[in-house]
Write a protein that binds this DNA or RNA. Structure first.
Lengths: 333, 333
DNA sequence: CTGTTAGCGCGTTCAC
DNA sequence: GTGAACGCGCTAACAG
């Protein structure tokens, strides 16, 4: 059995209340008693029982993190940052995966809430099931909004817009887009921004023909590869000379598809990704991509969850285009 | 305030003991009372407070997971599996990162232990600081042993051996090896197995010249790239025609280095990785690698932590060589 | 079969 | 400045 506060009190010849006070760094304890208590704490290796404390105070120092898939490098990066900042503040993080499944998400959030976390950081996949589930727990969502909770996100529309703008500026006109699942707002917004820039271009350049080819899938590597293959299996005259994706994972899958088909990047095909995961700068060629400021996202989310001030409704961050080696001017026919 | 068991009792006109009994699915409750209690539980939306229960029972349903770096795809995969299996059994998982820092590891384990987890799954980076820290908590370590605790791991020596064997069989004689940190057993074992196969070859083929070039670094992408560059910056006559690595991440970094230097894989250079992370089959070319059976590892680890039977001391799993596209016969000069 | 009660370990009044 | 006592929500042992 671990020693309790009672053991310390007994051994130090004081009452439990006094021990509790030195634990709480309460100033109203005489110096010699405090020293004696601290000594016996050290001596018997006493560690306060967090359960007792939490029960008494009716709050824990745990924060819940719910992500669709920890295997996704973007979320892994997020988890790392959350864990770092949280543990620096004395909090631990409880991890839950939803596998993009609304039913699982509901389940996970419910059990997490049952553990009375101090706060919740949530990357929601659905809002139908979760809506109204959370109350009384400081919650901030990332990437997509949930009514009644604070949101931290990059401006996905602007991200899509930047990608399209970059490709157009390089001279591309036959442009493809690999989207994420239509059911997610994130994906819809990125695509929307992308297409809007194309629309604008058409308006200002009525003579030019620009017809984007859009395909939809998941955010993962495999989806990028499959959809890429689909997009690239066309006659030279209609095949896109550039493709933007909704995630770096898709872009890397696409890279593979292009390689399999003998297409050189960026000579034959330009690619721009989204997220700027660590791997983006290591693939061959290095990926031009839209960076999400993940450290900033995490900082704001954790501040929102742990901070004492009221939560803003929305923190919108600006994505930025990172130019590397996967984009060039289109090939001359 | 959330409703407590007392509220339920009062509202249902029974005692708290009875409510507790229906919660525990105790059979000694008459059917009509059970129904009434369940109805009022439903009615007021009562959820048992886990803190009270845990304090009373002196055990939680939390399992701690300590990994060096959640950003490493192998550990992310591990975390995913652990979380899946754990939540299926009603447990939640507390995540901690050590960043390969022994001091941080000690800290993390201590605070984790303070939360009285039902079990601990640990991928240790050091044993000096951690040794003896854990007692009274069911613990299994993964990858590297910690005295007094169960270990689940692949046979790293055999993995290294397989890699060397494959390269030799293809005809390679100038072979490089990118190792992980010398301070980790995992890395040492892989390298050891690798070099042993080379030694064996020398003994049975005294005429042939085989001198491995070994370099050491971290397990990540960047290290693979840097060390790869170092290894490949040599005259054609001495430059390795094949390089094995201690992780897929290193192998992918190496792929990038080779590409930067105009070396084609596998024509000019063969590469074999270690782990078989999801990305391994998606890079260009697909990576030949040594697979760790991660689902099996996780299953054993969780069984060890949650199971009631005594822990075996060691579960050693067999790695297997996955042949893909990154290896070929050496170029003819 | 059900009600009552004693703690689990802790923080916090309220006396002194 | 310090000690005694209560209660946070729950389970288990004991009565009835």
């Amino acid at each position: 059995m671990n020693p309790t506060i009672k053991d310390v009190a007994q051994r130090a010849g004081v009452s439990v209340g006094t021990v509790s006070r030195v634990l709480a760094k309460n100033k109203t304890v005489s110096e010699d008693i405090r020293a004696k208590v601290e000594a016996t704490i050290e001596a018997i290796g006493y560690r306060p029982n967090i359960l007792g404390r939490s029960l008494r105070l009716n709050k824990t120092d745990i924060i819940g993190l719910v992500v669709p898939d920890i295997t996704n490098p973007f979320f892994a990066e997020l988890a790392k940052h959350v864990e770092m900042l949280a543990s620096a503040e004395g909090y631990s993080v409880l991890l839950a995966n939803t596998h993009d499944d609304p039913e699982a998400e509901k389940q996970q959030i419910e059990t997490l809430l049952g553990r009375l976390p101090a706060g919740l950081i949530l990357v929601p996949v659905s809002n139908s099931l979760v809506d109204g589930l959370i109350s009384g727990t400081r919650t901030v969502t990332i990437d997509r909004p949930l009514s009644g909770h604070a949101l931290v996100a990059v401006d996905n529309r602007e991200g899509g817009y930047l990608a399209a703008d970059h490709l157009l500026a390089l001279g591309h006109r036959r442009i493809g887009y690999i989207s994420g699942p239509n059911s997610t707002d994130v994906s819809a917004e990125r695509r929307e921004g992308f297409l809007r820039r194309l629309d604008e271009f058409r308006e200002t350049n009525p003579g030019e023909y620009v017809a984007p080819q859009v395909v939809e899938g998941h955010f993962d590597y495999r989806s990028g590869e499959e959809l890429g293959k689909k997009l690239l299996t066309q006659a030279d005259a209609t095949r896109p000379t550039a493709i933007a994706t909704a995630s770096d994972q898709q872009a890397i899958g696409l890279l593979r598809a292009a390689g399999d088909m003998g297409l050189r990047v960026p000579t034959d095909l330009s690619i721009v990704g989204f997220d700027d995961i660590p791997l983006a700068s290591l693939v061959l060629p290095r990926l031009t991509t839209i960076r999400q400021p993940i450290a900033e996202i995490t900082r704001l989310a954790l501040e929102g969850v742990l901070g004492s001030h009221a939560l803003q409704e929305e923190y919108k961050l600006r994505p930025v285009l990172i130019e590397r080696g996967s984009c060039a001017a289109p090939p001359v026919p």
